[in-house]
Design a protein around this nucleic acid. Structure first.
Length: 485
RNA sequence: GGCUGCGUAGCAAAAUGGUUAUGCAGUGGCCUGCAAAGCCAUCUACGGCGGUUCGAUUCCGCCCGCAGCCUCCA
């Protein structure tokens, strides 16, 4: 029985789809004026893992993740760059998709964009104005009248009095209440603008998501997700807008992922302590990033450091060493059956609010069993390895060829991402450092030295390679395999 | 100030009212020409103070510390 923590009730709840067998899930995506950082990567990976698990459980999932492609920061950046704002957002949408592919994040089913949803946005604002939940302010902007919505603050556990007591924003004289937020913003000269009943302008951020979510999934749907920081005011405002406009319940279950931190501080643009995905990819392969994200529970904070990433690499190496030489062609055989014991434990972990650290612990147990089977029970080897690789696929990991992984190879599309060239065909390229040919040649020389019992030469070859980051491993049958540190 | 949430061994990170988490690192052993990898064993835990209980890291209260939100933010 799948249980999910609901921010609305602050409890884990048994998951009950609105319609049997179907799930509608909306996740707040990126505002596209810059490259994705590791915090964005976390959202993508977390909800991708959630989506994979729903599908694995047999649900018919509609996964929507929007793109905010019009907003103050976008306009500002476009001006700074002297670039058309549409060109700018196209560029960063492409970049985001590249990052996504690198991290083995499957594309959402629908990816609505604010600028393509203007009619729906205007319609929703109009309804809110007609219902007297919104008003035109002194400056012509349209605002939501927060005190007209009685449940305002329910999601974030705040109430209007407390909020006003801690007010940090300059009071906007155009608003009736300082907490009121903008639905439609009048355009300044030369800003991108759309026609509306209130004049030329553009939508506020919060209304975009309400309109896009409702449009793609209906007035009432199952799950809405996003980062913790969106809880207030963004998601609170979405509830006020959508429920205000439709009179129906908006969302059953709210999921919020924790932050990525650097030195125990939130990673963010404003603090400037962020690492972009492509920056990190210069140093670590994408599966390491994904694995790193999965090593902590999605609601916990995740501290980013070289040490954590190195640990993640070491953990993955352990899996790939176990998988090495375990499956014919490194493929899961057809009509294989997942080992029930591990499957059950894996599902128990995932059913408990997507407990990926626990699920990984199950996989480590499996790797241990596989290592033992290789030596003592070869007849079990394939079933164990296939189960490991299969369960790994549900988390979006362990799908590389073990030998290639251990030799530090990386796919071409990831490699090219670093130079921002668009490439779709994944081709393997060699890991950096001493070439495979040289390593293979050295291994042959060393085997000859070993035959001649010239241990000094054999050890010298091994040490020299070690200095270049290549580790040799002799197996009992006289062959030598190798991997990069 | 208000509202959330967190505090687990050297590091990372789960579960749990009484029993091995797990990974990395350390130590000892097996294996190996020696290593590496693997296997086996093993050392480091539950912020502090009270309460409930036969028994609490786990439940409750208080305190201390940390983070987030209350402005745009994943």
């Amino acid at each position: 029985m799948l249980k999910i923590y609901n921010t609305l009730t602050r409890k884990k709840e048994p998951f009950q789809p609105r319609v049997a067998g179907k799930v509608g899930m909306y996740v707040c995506g990126m505002t596209v004026y810059d490259y994705c950082h590791i915090g964005h990567a976390r959202v993508m990976v977390v909800f991708d893992t959630v989506a994979r698990y729903f599908r694995y459980q047999g649900y018919e999932l509609t996964y929507v993740r929007n793109i905010t492609d019009i907003d103050d920061k976008i306009i500002q950046r476009a001006i700074e760059n002297g670039e058309d704002y549409g060109k700018l957002t196209e560029r960063f949408i492409d970049a985001m998709h590249e990052d996504e592919r690198a991290l083995a994040v499957l594309p959402p089913d629908l990816e609505p964009r604010a600028t393509r949803s203007i009619d729906d946005i205007i319609a929703m604002i109009k309804t809110l104005v007609d219902k007297d939940l919104a008003y035109v302010g002194a400056n012509g902007d349209v605002f939501y009248a927060v005190n007209k919505f009685k449940d305002y603050g329910r999601l974030s556990g705040k109430n209007l009095d407390d909020l006003q007591a801690g007010e940090r924003v300059d009071v906007d004289l155009a608003k009736r209440n300082p907490m009121d937020f903008v639905l439609w913003k009048m355009a300044k000269a030369n800003e991108p603008a759309w026609d509306s009943p209130w004049g030329l302008g553009r939508p506020g951020w919060h209304i975009e998501c309400s309109a896009m979510a409702t449009c793609c999934l209906g007035n009432h749907f199952d799950i809405h997700g996003g980062g913790m920081d969106l809880q207030f005011p963004h998601h609170e405002n979405e509830i006020a807008q959508s429920e205000g406009a439709t009179g129906e319940k908006f969302v059953n279950l709210w999921m919020h992922n924790g932050f990525v931190r650097v030195d125990d501080e939130k990673m963010s643009k404003s603090l400037g302590n962020f690492f972009t995905v492509r920056e990190v990819l210069k140093k670590y392969r994408p599966e390491i990033i994904r694995f790193f994200i999965l090593t902590s529970h999605y609601r916990s904070p995740l501290n980013y450091s070289d040490e954590s990433l190195n640990d993640a690499k070491a953990g993955l190496d352990r899996f790939y060493i176990a998988l090495r030489d375990a499956l014919p062609d490194d493929k899961i055989p057809e009509n294989f059956i997942v080992l029930d014991d591990y499957k059950v434990r894996f599902e128990q972990a995932m059913d408990d609010d997507f407990n990926t650290p626990e699920a990984l612990a199950v996989l480590f147990g499996l790797a241990n069993e596989l290592n033992k089977a290789k030596k003592h029970k070869p007849e079990n080897k394939i079933a164990l390895a296939a189960t490991l690789k299969y369960l790994g696929s549900l988390l979006g990991i362990l799908q590389n060829g073990p030998d290639g992984w251990l030799k530090g190879n990386v796919t071409l599309n990831v490699h090219n991402l670093l130079t921002a060239t668009h490439v779709d065909a994944p081709e393997l390229i060699e890991g950096s450092g001493v070439s495979e040919e040289i390593v293979d040649q050295q291994i042959q020389d060393r085997i000859a030295a070993k035959k001649a019992k010239d241990w000094a030469l054999a050890d010298k070859i091994r040490n020299d390679l070690k200095d270049q980051g290549v580790i040799l491993e002799d197996s009992p049958d006289g062959t030598t395999s190798w991997r990069r540190e």
